[in-house]
Simulated assay, not measured.
Amino acid sequence: MQIRLLNPDDAKALAAIRLEALEQEPYAFGASLEEEKNRSLEEWQARLAESNREESGYIGAFDAGEMIGLIGYFRHKGAKVRHKASIVSMYVKNAHRGTGVAGQLMQAALSHLQAFGDIDQVQLAVVTANESAKRFYEKMGFAPYGLEKRALKIGDIYVDEAHMYMMFE
């Protein structure tokens, strides 16, 4: 298995796994399948442009050339909040869950963010109904700091999110 930062050449694979994630787990992501499937290949490539890497990016897990997992990050903007980054878009294909892929993706993302040298806090949000994801994030060292009621609305259904953070010491 290979874990690496994605580049514009990975745009088709990113689009495919992102759309799969939104279809398989619609309550776990802030984006909707309808919104994301209308993005052009050029938009996906722009998301992966090298010039954006210190502001946002994606790391993928590959097995035999197939992207089997994904994690995204973005750095907060503004002088007073640039010390923080957020983890987003965490997804591992069903066939590879429970194999350690998620942990390796998270470790790669945290190492990448820590290497910037000036990020000392990483945040994420997780749907409260997803107990296994919450346990995973706690195992990785994240602690809860808040609850957002009705964070997402999918059709007529509201979804709450737990907000979690990790400090780099």
Score class of each variant (00 low, 15 high):
83 H>N: 00
81 V>I: 15
104 Q>F: 11
68 I>V: 07
110 L>I: 01
65 G>M: 06
55 E>Q: 15
131 E>M: 09
133 A>Q: 05
17 I>P: 04
164 M>D: 09
161 E>S: 08
109 A>I: 07
107 Q>K: 13
45 Q>N: 03
87 I>A: 03
13 A>M: 03
9 D>V: 15
144 P>A: 04
99 T>P: 11
68 I>A: 05
103 G>E: 11
112 H>F: 11
84 K>R: 15
105 L>D: 00
66 E>P: 02
146 G>E: 08
1 M>Y: 10
37 K>M: 11
141 G>A: 02
167 M>P: 08
99 T>G: 04
96 H>N: 08
29 F>S: 07
114 Q>H: 10
141 G>Q: 04
169 E>S: 15
130 N>L: 12
95 A>S: 05
63 D>M: 14
113 L>S: 08
120 D>S: 15
147 L>C: 02
89 S>E: 12
86 S>I: 10
75 R>K: 12
25 E>P: 02
88 V>Q: 13
146 G>V: 06
6 L>R: 06
56 S>A: 10
73 Y>R: 07
126 V>M: 14
16 A>C: 01
51 S>W: 06
145 Y>N: 06
107 Q>G: 11
26 P>N: 01
73 Y>V: 02
20 E>T: 06
110 L>W: 04
90 M>N: 05
20 E>D: 03
79 A>R: 12
66 E>S: 01
15 A>E: 07
36 E>T: 14
112 H>M: 00
100 G>I: 05
136 F>I: 08
21 A>M: 07
82 R>G: 10
162 A>D: 13
71 I>R: 01
160 D>P: 00
31 A>R: 11
56 S>T: 13
82 R>S: 13
20 E>F: 00
48 L>C: 03
57 G>P: 09
167 M>C: 13
83 H>E: 03
42 E>V: 10
17 I>E: 11
28 A>W: 13
104 Q>G: 02
167 M>V: 15
165 Y>I: 02
84 K>P: 01
95 A>Y: 07
136 F>V: 00
138 E>L: 01
